[in-house]
Nucleic acid binder design. Sequence first.
DNA 1: ACCTGAACACCGTTCAAGT
DNA 2: ACCTGAACACCGTTCAAGT
Lengths: 220, 220
Amino acid sequence: MAEATTKAPRRSDALSKERIVAAAVEILDAGGEAELTVRGLTAHLATGRGAVYHHVSGKHDLLAAATDRVISEVTSGARSEEEASEAIRALALGIFDAIDAHPWVGTELSRNPMQPAVLRIWTSIGVQLQRLGLEPDALPAAGSALVAYVLGSTAQYVAGPRRATSEVDRQAFLEKVADQWRTHAPQAHVTEAAAALVEHDDREQFLEGVDIVLAGIKHR
Amino acid sequence: MAEATTKAPRRSDALSKERIVAAAVEILDAGGEAELTVRGLTAHLATGRGAVYHHVSGKHDLLAAATDRVISEVTSGARSEEEASEAIRALALGIFDAIDAHPWVGTELSRNPMQPAVLRIWTSIGVQLQRLGLEPDALPAAGSALVAYVLGSTAQYVAGPRRATSEVDRQAFLEKVADQWRTHAPQAHVTEAAAALVEHDDREQFLEGVDIVLAGIKHR
DNA sequence: ACCTGAACACCGTTCAAGT
DNA sequence: ACCTGAACACCGTTCAAGT
């Protein structure tokens, strides 16, 4: 009987928020933010232009959901067995690597700092910081400093969202900074620092910064 | 004779990059990024649609120039008489206040981290850090940490660029963070920290973060 | 309920034509 | 050289009409 009253079977590939978000992530990974258009997305999903609006409220919602999808994989993998500052380093590195793999995430996190993905980051960092044994009234500033550092770094790290030649441009930018440093303070050790600035490894330097902020939280 | 051969006098309000950028800043301050359109801008300047393209290369260039205009006022006001860490605190606060007055600047700095305004910030911070007496090979990580913290904080601080009710939303977001903290670690002192998170003063907390990073740079 | 796709109300940028 | 404004090639979103 159940069989008889069943309506025409649903297409196995029926639209859903999950499928739409997955397609958006694919497009964003392939072509960056400029490539994500409703037209392109609906073509990719082989559906009509307005179909996605039954599942997401608009492009902002879609971008936030795609970002949350990437970030939630990082924060849900957090391990609580290790020491708190080690867990924070691991969490920060996880975010860095996720943004390295999906540069549009870095841009989106900074552009809209009140989205679900940022809430996840705040929560994870807060939980670990709490294990560090800080005074309660020191926790907000410590959390805010770490979140700001992590999101600020990743925004700095991902090149401008619109340029294909991003790696070249980033190098060129750092060389400009180094030039300025040399011009304003031409001592030998500044020249040395300027050279180091251009040649550093981004990932290592990001971790150094996490350690700086952690040291500051402990020793202030 | 000079008089006789003079062409028809130039309109005293002839277009120039400076005038265009000034108009853009006005529009951005009044209505935010969404309000800045080429149509609106050229109407405001009482000129034809394509006229601005003789002076700026496009909308990206215009936005970067407007941002640089705001930031250059901060960095050029830097004083070198004071102690280095005091100068860094003053510089950071100057940037914070500029972004408080022009929220679109915060969004733009993070969106495109390789623009002239960011170069100014790097330069100013580098010059002051150099006076702190760091080892040359510690300078790049210290500079990068400070720049990331400052830009990350201001991006967090300015609400999402598209919402009018930003102050309400920011409060609501912090309450969500506080809720998560309480849920994940319901100890009394976490509850206390969560309350402090919601009630803090943004500007004070920003400065606390600068001190945390400075302490970390010195004590790592 | 869900989907379609034309229509709507916009964009940034270009470029022949004017001065 | 500089400016004009129509034209071009797009956008995100809505909505009557279909199933």
